[in-house]
Amino acid sequence: MGLLALFRSKPSSARIAKERLRIIVAQERSTRDAPDFLPLLRRELLQVIHKYVNVDPEAVQVNLEREEGHEVLELSVALPEKQGA
């Protein structure tokens, strides 16, 4: 098992776990002290965008960043790549 693992090109499950956690923990931390309306805001934005573009739910990110003296609400929407005709 130990030797086999060395030759396997697939990332180990521990590494997958770490990567997944790194992303979700960072995301949850960024919304930790954020106002409660953020998830709802994100959902409604997603609905509106959906009327025009077929985006993946994961493609809409809403972040609230605190800087000295002011807050920045950052919204990013990753549009899907153009499908071939």
Binding site: M1, G2, A5, S12, S13, A14, R15, A17, K18, L21, R22, V25
Partner: peptide, 13 residues
């Protein structure tokens, strides 16, 4: 064996 996160992994996260 890469089946469990290490102390350093957990510490880092």
């Amino acid at each position: 064996n890469g089946e469990m996160m290490s102390v350093d992994d957990v510490k880092e996260i």
